[in-house]
Amino acid sequence: MATLPETTTRRIVPLTQLKRGDRGVVSEARTDDESKALLGAMGLRVNEPIRLCRHGEPCIVMTGACESCRIGLTRRLADRVFVEVAM
């Protein structure tokens, strides 16, 4: 479970607003329950750290503390996954 340092300013943005190399922590998936459960089981669950590898279509993120899992999402889905990033 990852959190950002208390002193940093935080912002919650959709995955599509991250730039390549940006890191963040999954905050929320504003999708239907089925997709939310699937994303969670794949590793994109709340409080999971992520790093953006590719911006656009598809959006590619690495998940987990050891960034061992690479997940590709269509832009439509990436737009609904919100992450907390340090400013």
Binding site: T31, S35, L38, L39, M42, L44, P58, I60, C69, R70, I71, G72, L73, T74, R76, L77, R80
Partner: peptide, 10 residues
């Protein structure tokens, strides 16, 4: 359609 999320294996 269901928006696609796929694991990209090594």
């Amino acid at each position: 359609g269901r928006p696609m999320a796929l694991e990209l294996p090594s």
